[in-house]
Write a protein that binds this DNA or RNA. Structure first.
Lengths: 228, 228
DNA sequence: CACACCATAGCTGCATACAGGTTGGCAAAT
DNA sequence: ATTTGCCAACCTGTATGCAGCTATGGTGTG
C-alpha cells in the first residue's frame, strides 16, 4: 500500500517534509470518506502506521484541525468533524462566489494542460459508468478540482478555493449513495462543458460552469435534507 | 507585562489552550510590526518568555507558518516572512473582492455593537492625532477590522476576510512612516463613513467603504514602490 | 594579505518519558 | 434490579533528551 502517492496537490507555498506527507494522506482519506465523520483517530495508531513517533503525527493532526477537518479533545482523541448544516450553507454560498471570481484572474498559460487533463478524465469517467466505485469517483472529482484550480492566477484566491473545496467535499457523505447516477451524469456534462470552454480559451466560462454545478449539487443536498 | 491581553479576537471556531494564546500573541506582534520582516525568532527564547517548553511554542510557530506569516528553516530558526510583491498584489486584489462581498451576508443584529465600537474608535483616533504612535494606530486598525468582520454572517467569508487581513497588514511596513498623516486622515474619514452607513443599517455600504479604502491604500503602496 | 577549510556553537526536527484529563466498567450500597 | 461512586486503562498535552543540519569564526596555507 503506497500511501505516498498523494498526487502532488497544487503546491501553493510548497512545504516539505514528512509531516506534510502525513497531512496530505490523512486529508485525502477524510475527503475521500475513508475516514467518515465521527471517526476517532489515535495518535499512537497513526504513528505506528507511518513508522514515525507521535510528534509528526500530532503536527499533521493540528493542521487538519486548523483546516476544520478534525477536532481534537484532550483525553479522548481526534475526531473527524461532522457536517454542521449552518457551516455547510455558508461554505457553499461562499464557494459559488469564489467560482464566479475565477474568470477575473485567468492563468491563460495553463489552459492546454488543463484541457488535456479534462480529456483524460472524460475517458476515465466512461470506464467508471459500469461500476459503482465511490472512491474512484472521488478521486476523479479531486483531479478535476486541481485542474481548474491551476487556472486561477491569483494565489490568495487559489488557496481559498482549495481550502473550501476540501471542507465541502465531505458534505456529500449523506447524499453520495442516493444520487450516484445523477452525480455521474452531472460530472460527465461538467467535464464536457469545461472542455468546450477550454477549447475556446474562456476561463471565465469555466468558473461559471463550476459555479452552476456546485449549485446543482447544493440543490441536491438540500432536497435530500428536506427528506429527513 | 501582561501578554495574555490579546483582546479576544473574533473567535470563529474558538480554539482554546495556551498554544492559541501564544499564537495570537506572536501573530499580533508580527502584524503590529514589533517583529519586523526578516527578524529571526528562536524557540528556546520564546519558550523562556512564555514560561513553557519548546513544544507549545513550536505548535504556535507552525500555525504561523501555515498562515504564511513566518518561515521555519532547519538549523537556522523561524523568520518573519518578507513581502513578496506578487503575493502582495494578489492579496490586495482578493481583499477588494471580499469586501465587496460583505454586503451579501449581512449580520444585521451586529450593527448596534459595531456602531458603538466605531464611535469609540473615533474618539481614540482624535487622541492619536497629536502623537505619532504607530502601535496604537495599528491597534486601532485591528479593532476596526474586528468590528467590521463581525458584520459578516457567513462563517467562511468571515474566516477568509480575517485570514488575509492579517497577511495584508504587514505590507504597510514600508509605507507606514512616509504616509503616516495621510493614513491617519484616511482612517478618520473611513470611520466617519462607516458610522454613517451603520446608522442607516446599510452593511453593504460598509463593505464598499472598506473596499475603497483598501484600494486607496493599495494605490499608496504602489506609488511608494514606484519611487524605488 | 587573501582564501579555503574545518571545527564548533546553536538551532530545528524527531523521539520518548511523564503529567493531566476523560471514559467506561465494575462493584457495592440502596 | 437499579443507581451511584470509584478505579483503572487509555488518550492527549507537555517537557526534555538526542540527532541532524546550518552558519560562522578562526586557523592554516598559498
Amino acid at each position: 500500500m503506497n500511501e505516498s502517492a498523494t498526487n502532488e496537490t497544487s503546491r501553493t507555498r510548497a512545504p516539505r517534509g514528512q509531516v506534510t506527507d502525513i497531512y496530505r494522506a490523512l486529508r485525502d482519506r477524510i475527503c475521500l470518506l475513508r475516514y467518515p465523520p465521527g471517526m476517532l483517530l489515535g495518535e499512537h495508531e497513526l504513528a505506528e502506521e507511518f513508522t514515525v513517533s507521535r510528534t509528526p503525527v500530532r503536527q499533521a493532526l493540528q493542521r487538519l484541525e486548523y483546516d476544520g477537518l478534525t477536532e481534537t479533545r484532550n483525553g479522548v482523541g481526534t475526531m473527524v468533524t461532522g457536517v454542521d448544516p449552518n457551516a455547510f450553507r455558508d461554505i457553499y454560498a461562499f464557494r459559488l462566489r469564489l467560482s464566479e471570481m475565477m474568470g477575473e484572474f485567468p492563468a491563460e498559460e495553463e489552459v492546454p494542460r488543463a484541457l488535456s487533463t479534462i480529456l483524460a478524465l472524460q475517458d476515465r469517467l466512461e470506464v467508471l459508468k459500469g461500476q459503482r466505485d465511490m472512491e474512484a469517483f472521488w478521486q476523479l472529482n479531486h483531479e478535476l478540482h486541481h485542474a481548474t484550480n491551476r487556472l486561477i492566477a491569483n494565489l490568495a484566491l487559489r488557496e481559498t478555493h482549495e481550502r473550501y473545496y476540501f471542507q465541502a467535499s465531505r458534505i456529500w457523505y449523506s447524499v453520495i449513495e442516493a444520487f450516484f447516477e445523477e452525480q455521474l451524469a452531472d460530472l460527465a456534462s461538467e467535464l464536457n462543458e469545461i472542455a468546450g470552454a477550454l477549447r475556446a480559451g474562456d476561463i471565465r466560462a469555466v468558473g461559471y460552469i463550476q459555479r452552476n454545478h456546485i449549485a446543482f449539487g447544493l440543490h441536491r443536498v438540500a432536497s435530500a435534507h428536506m427528506a429527513d
